[in-house]
Structures are given as C-alpha cells and as structure tokens.
Design a protein around this nucleic acid. Sequence first.
DNA 1: ACACCAGTTTGGACTTTGTCTAAAACTAGA
DNA 2: TCTAGTTTTAGACAAAGTCCAAACTGGTGT
Lengths: 132, 132
Amino acid sequence: MADLISVLRRHGIRATPQRLAVAAHVLSAKSHPTADEVWRQVRRRCPTLSRATVYNTLNMLAEKGLIRPQVLREGTVVFDPRTDRHHHFIDVETGRVYDVPWSAIRVSGKEKLRDFDVQEYQVVLRGRRRRP
Amino acid sequence: MADLISVLRRHGIRATPQRLAVAAHVLSAKSHPTADEVWRQVRRRCPTLSRATVYNTLNMLAEKGLIRPQVLREGTVVFDPRTDRHHHFIDVETGRVYDVPWSAIRVSGKEKLRDFDVQEYQVVLRGRRRRP
DNA sequence: ACACCAGTTTGGACTTTGTCTAAAACTAGA
DNA sequence: TCTAGTTTTAGACAAAGTCCAAACTGGTGT
C-alpha cells in the first residue's frame, strides 16, 4: 500500500489520506462499483469522507487512466478497476456486471465503417449467468 | 396518423391524445431522445402534458416492444424508435448516438462462453463521426 | 521549527432524472 | 345520464451528481 502512494504520485496526484482510501478500495474491487457504493464502503473507515471528495477522486483516477468509467447500468456510472480491454456481460436478473475476456470474442467489420472513425469499442452482452 | 391509433390498440394501449402525441413524436424520431427531451418537445403542442404521463407512456411503449430503452448516455436512458437489431456508435465529441447496421459487423465467439447464457448483445463503438 | 499559500476537503445547496401519489378529469358502457 | 374504472396532472419525493464558500492540510522556503 506504500506502493499506492507512488502510483498516485507518478500520475501527478497528491496522495492524501482520503484519496488513498478511495483509490485502495476501487483499485482492488472485484466488482464494478458506483461512486456512492465506494462512498458508503470507504466511509466506514473514514467517517468524515465527503461525497464530493469521492466523486472528485474517482473522476481524477479515471482521467489519469487508473480506472475506467462505464455506462452499463441505468441511472449511474460504474467504475471498472480493470483498464485492459475487455467486454461486459450483464445479468438481466441481478443487474450484476461481469467481465468477458477480450480474446473470447472477435468483432469484425468495424474497420469498414465509412462514416465513423472508431477509436474504441466493446461488446455488451445480456442474459443469464450460468450456475457457478 | 389514424394508423397510430390502431397500432396502439393492437398492443392493448388505449389511445388517448397524450399517448398519441408522445408516441407520434418518439416513433418518428430520427435521434435517440431522452424522456425529458420528448417531454420538452411534445409539450409545445400539448402544454398541459405532465412529465409523469411522458414517462408512463414511454415505459409502456417499451414494454410492448414499440420502442427500445438503451443505456448509452451517462445519467439517462434514451429511447430508440428502431426495434430491429443494430449496433451503436457514440461520437465522443458531441455525445450523439448513431445506428450501425446489424449486417455491418460480425461478432463471433459469444456462443462459446461457458459461464453466460447470452440472450442479446450489441457492439458499442466510440470515436469521431467522419464529416458527412 | 514556523509561517505561508496553493491545493484539498467538507457539508450543504442545487440540478437532473425518474418514481410515486392523491385528487381531478376523462371514457366507455349500462 | 350515471357510474365505475382509467388516465392525467401537479407536486412531493428520491437518487445521482455537481458546485461552492469556508475551513483545513501539508509541502516549501526560511
């Protein structure tokens, strides 16, 4: 975790206790939390943490490329701690978001689109997760 | 537009003036409007139209399969008047959403996903629209 | 060690998107 | 026409997110 300080510094982010707490939480998240979910969790250890700071920190981490905002759920942005390319599967029953390896799916034809200069893309799949 | 009345009736929706106005607007939309955008537009011809009625009507049209809600923009659902399958391109400058023909892109590998039972999917592309 | 000052944090106000509710206003059928 | 069942309306409410002024930190130079 002393490592996290240098990670932030390397990206030009001053490492305050609040930012460290937020960053530690979101970067190690196994799920795709919303800002308010991060706030509720981190506030248990850091009770004066304000919502504004959480939003500021998450947006800052996103700007620096340490996490990735994703528009996958109605009404709210979720933050993805994985920054390597991957697709997403959304369980229609639970709303939970799962990662799908980039290599599992191939998308062809996007280079041929005349009207669009594609910078990035992902496949969004919906359905039911099979019993684990 | 007398046609629209029978379209609604065929789907078990009583054709009130408010519903006709909302349906006519969203079904002929060239873009992907939000509920509030529909409200602001339709209210110009029908000034007492309430926000609740617009939301109710759009959700009803979506339930009946006449339009399709899409999670493509931050903070709000947009409604897609096209119900045939297609992909979406989002201009990163303007935020505008464009349709991409289903046949233009092929996605392979999704059948082989062991953990997921895929019911539907789409490719979401981001980049810059080329000058038209 | 000290003071300074830019950068941070805070809490609350505010905005936007969306839902809910009770009351008023329709509509269709007997 | 009367009436029971739907719809509509306006406003209250909730959640997600932004913005602000005031208070607070924490490096830097001395």
